[in-house]
Write a protein that binds this DNA or RNA. Structure first.
Length: 282
DNA sequence: CTAGGATCCTGTCAGC
DNA sequence: TGCTGACAGGATCCTA
């Protein structure tokens, strides 16, 4: 599940691989995954890559931007002298490209390729001009990046959604950008808060700690992006390891809590699998 | 305005 | 073995 740190990792990886390269041809293998005219992209040079929340924005020499959203199972794979892949952590990036799950791919002028794989077809590429960008609903309604969120503003958000569970509110991209299921659980664990607590029941101190936790777990994951990337790049297909390295509760049900030793449990909150420690989260 | 559930898609896995 | 249903979880849409 690509969340903010995974998308940032892709951005940093692709910056080194595809900036300054010219797109020769774009292959659309799944119509649903691509919005726009492939012809508007072909012949263009990639001049920069930005990220906003979980969205990747690839800027082209003709002023158009390709917005890429990986949703749940998207992967970006660059195949040059070596292979860089990041996004949804499964093994399909090791396969021959284009593969079973390749929905779009680009041929660069220098003979290298960029593949977009997406098992469940929820992700997309969308060609946009300045007007589209300025009026885009997703981008316009997106909350601020976690590290730009002021503690007072975060507390305000929680007051506004006083009856909703904490986890639902931090997952909502309108409230804060980039948090997904993994970092929502990890942030709640950091703050010692049960994810289904009503937002209105949090003290200012708890709210501050939650915001701090979200920033810290995501920053730690971004900082390890280099090693994650390296793992993905290897031809032997070793899996990226941010979950093993950093997750305290996510997919750890049945394990011992690293903080208090109680058992990590799993339940459902806000319609999602939710991992928590019954011992030290209140 | 908010809260909560259904929806989109496809592969994997548990249970019979 | 082969079927069925639950599950995965980002964002949008719909209803109350």
């Amino acid at each position: 599940m690509p969340e903010l740190p995974e998308v940032e990792t892709i951005k940093r990886g692709l910056e080194k691989c595809i900036v300054e390269k010219k797109i020769q041809k774009l292959h659309i293998l799944c119509e649903k995954s691509f919005q726009g005219e492939p012809g508007a992209v072909e012949g263009q040079k990639i001049i920069g890559i930005r990220r906003r929340g979980k969205a990747l924005l690839i800027e082209l020499s003709n002023k158009l931007t390709v917005m890429v959203h990986l949703r749940m199972t998207g992967q970006m794979i660059y195949d040059g002298s070596e292979r860089f892949a990041a996004g949804h952590p499964d093994e399909s990036f090791r396969e021959e490209m284009p593969g079973r799950f390749t929905r779009i791919y680009a041929d660069f002028e220098d003979g290298t390729h960029l593949y977009f794989n997406d098992l469940r077809k929820f992700g997309f590429w969308k060609v946009m001009d300045d007007l589209d960008l300025a009026s885009d609903k997703f981008l316009n309604n997106l909350g601020v990046e976690p590290w730009e969120m002021k503690p007072a503003a975060f507390y305000e958000v929680l007051r506004r959604h006083a009856k909703a569970p904490v986890k639902a509110v931090i997952l909502d991209q309108h409230n804060i950008a980039g948090v997904g299921n993994i970092y929502a659980d990890e942030g709640c664990f950091y703050a010692g808060i049960l994810p289904w607590r009503e937002c209105g029941s949090l003290s200012r101190k708890e709210a501050d700690k939650l915001l701090e936790g979200l920033c810290k777990v995501m920053q730690a994951s971004i900082d390890s992006g280099g090693s994650t990337m390296k793992d993905y790049v290897r031809a032997d297909g070793t899996r990226g390891n941010y979950l093993e390295k950093f997750a305290q509760v996510f997919r750890r049900e049945g394990c011992e809590c690293p903080r208090c030793g109680a058992e990590i449990l799993k339940t459902r909150t806000a319609g999602r699998g939710t991992h928590y420690c019954g011992g030290c989260q209140k």
